[in-house]
């Protein structure tokens, strides 16, 4: 099952924290939405460091991360 983390309007460390929590109990692809550049940067670098496969789409200030399940 897919799930969505809406971290818009939240400040550090919550966007990363909520996304990592969702990844810890993942059962399918996860969508994470952030609306600050600093959150997008930290999320991107942290997912890369953890060898997660993800794609990024941008819409104005919002950045959406589509994170693939771990063993796909």
């Amino acid at each position: 099952m897919s799930s969505t983390v809406d971290a818009r309007g939240l400040s550090c460390p919550h966007p990363l924290l909520l996304t990592m929590k969702a990844l810890a109990d993942e059962t399918g692809p996860i969508t994470a939405i952030v609306d600050s550049e600093s959150s997008a940067e930290s999320l991107s670098s942290h997912l890369t460091k953890n060898k997660r496969v993800f794609s990024v789409t941008r819409n104005g200030r919002e950045t959406t991360f589509q994170i693939e399940p771990k063993n796909s």
Partner: peptide, 16 residues
């Protein structure tokens, strides 16, 4: 995004 508090908190929460 230099932050002395974030530096510690990122390690405690994310090992970042």
């Amino acid at each position: 995004r230099f932050c002395s508090v974030g530096a510690v908190q990122d390690i405690l929460l994310f090992k970042r």
